[in-house]
């Protein structure tokens, strides 16, 4: 197995009295897409910027492609493509001109025309940066991150504010990057995006990793799924709970409406139906609800809005 592309161990970052990152560890395997998912202010951007060599860790270690992002920045920078959350271009520079400029710093940049076409930047190529739409600025930022043919790209919210077509084009490009052997580390708020793109997801909140795994792992084993059914009211849910595998709960949330929560396996489902048979009741509208990544995310990070 090759060494991981990014390795963060026990990272702590503080701004004055605020701790932005609080003992965070993560690993990005070479050639994969890894997503950092978390609410605003969770420490995602700070973590990425430490990997990009913008910030010095208060404690902990960060290695990118085996190098120290600060001490070995010169060696590292041509190998890593960076997309900032916003900005990064002169306000008067034309989109095409900016992309050509970044390309001119690299030894063997991507061919210009196909890249522009892929990201739909042709129609706004002569438009000054300040007059590009938010989506066009994002697409230019993505083009600037990949134009130098890097080994690793670090993308901070690459599709925030993109329309569905542009988002799809960005996803296709990101997937093709991984298929071509480029490692991708990205942050996102979009569950759909993380679920579709990432092989591995870190859910980050308040500067810590609160959960991690593949999308399937996060939504099945990590989460408490639900079985619902309707039957006669007033059944003995305590005996149902006793029959269920450990970790499951059962309750009647409305008269005649029952809910089983827990790790839902075929065994759990069989237990519910045989318990119903033993009670002589017919479970109607029986449904297994697999939690989405969004449910998992809200479970882990809380439902209240944060400023």
């Amino acid at each position: 197995m090759t060494a991981p592309a990014v390795k963060v161990r026990d990272l702590v970052m503080r701004y004055g009295a605020t701790t932005a990152v609080d003992g965070l560890s993560l690993t990005v395997e070479t050639g994969t897409i890894t997503a950092i998912l978390g609410p605003n202010g969770a420490g995602k951007t700070t973590t990425m910027e430490t990997c990009e060599g913008y910030r010095r860790p208060h404690s902990g270690t960060v290695r990118v492609l085996g190098l120290d992002p600060l001490a070995q920045h010169r060696e590292l920078s041509p190998r890593v493509g960076v997309m900032l959350q916003s900005g990064g271009a002169w306000s008067a520079v034309r989109a095409e001109e900016m992309l050509r400029y970044v390309a001119s710093l690299h030894a063997s940049p991507l061919p210009f025309a196909p890249l522009v076409e892929r990201l739909g930047l042709g129609s706004c190529g002569r438009t000054p940066y300040r007059r590009l739409s938010g989506g066009q600025q994002k697409r230019l930022g993505l083009a600037m991150a990949v134009v130098g043919r890097p080994e690793l790209v670090i993308l901070d919210e690459p599709t925030a504010g993109l329309d569905p077509q542009a988002r799809r084009a960005a996803w296709d490009l990101i997937e093709q990057l991984a298929a071509s052997g480029v490692t991708v580390l990205l942050t996102t708020h979009h569950m759909e995006e993380a679920e579709r793109l990432a092989a591995f997801i870190y859910v980050v909140d308040r500067g810590r990793v609160v959960s991690s795994g593949s999308p399937a792992e996060l939504t099945s084993s990590g989460a408490r799924n639900t079985i619902r059914f309707r039957a006669a009211p007033g059944l003995d849910t305590a005996s149902l709970a006793a029959a269920l595998p450990a970790g499951c709960t059962a309750h009647e949330y409305a008269p005649g409406a029952y809910q089983v929560d827990g790790p839902v396996t075929p065994q759990t489902l069989a237990t519910v139906t045989s318990w119903c048979a033993a009670q002589g009741v017919m479970p109607e509208s029986l449904a297994v609800e697999r939690h989405t990544l969004e449910d998992v995310f809200l479970q882990l990070t809380g439902r209240e809005l944060r400023s």
Binding site: S104, L105, H106, R118, R149, L173, S180, G181, V182
Partner: peptide, 25 residues
Amino acid sequence: MTSLDLSPAPGAQPLPHMVAAHALM
């Protein structure tokens, strides 16, 4: 769609080339 080879080929231009590109910009 024109095919685009995204496989890694990283590298920096020599410093004088980069300085000239920046000055021109």
